[in-house]
Amino acid sequence: MAKPKVATASLAGCFGCHMSILDIDERILKLAELVEFHKSPINDIKKFSERCLVGLIEGGCANDENVHVLQDFRKNCDVLISLGDCATMGGLPAMRNHVPLEECLAEAYLNGPTVHNPTKQIPNDPEIPLLLNKVYPLHEVVKIDLHLPGCPPPADAIWEVLVALLNNKPIDLKYGLLRYD
């Protein structure tokens, strides 16, 4: 029987959650026995070609590209997991939610204390995704099956969740694995 597939993506995140996925030490070998990584920055597969059992997404939705990737994951994964604080609540990027977008751009590219931008132009290439009015937690954009907070979530928590899912067992994180920092 083919191994169940796992896909991962980082949207408006810092890859810290991905580091945590890899941080399960030697269990990564065991994981590789249990599952096959499909579309993921870990192996650089860019497009879904098969249905996946689990999708792990770090980062919130900050721009239109994030939204499309997330919708693509929703379409191709049975169980979609919101991984880390940015995915579950917007995280650090959501700190801009208190400031109108126009001011954010001005601060980032024109007025900020460390900005060096002699042309005084805000980058506007058509290839650059457009920012959303605010950063959205994933569950406000698509239906999410599981939330695993943490910045990043502990490697053990990711491991326990994946193992429970693969064995069709209820998830019962022991104290200390559920955390918001």
Binding site: S82, M89, A94, N97, H98, H139, L148, P149, L178
Partner: peptide, 13 residues
């Protein structure tokens, strides 16, 4: 055991 609040964030100023 709160993983994420079921309510929408208000993001107040």
């Amino acid at each position: 055991g709160m993983t994420t609040p079921k309510y929408p964030y208000m993001f107040p100023q």
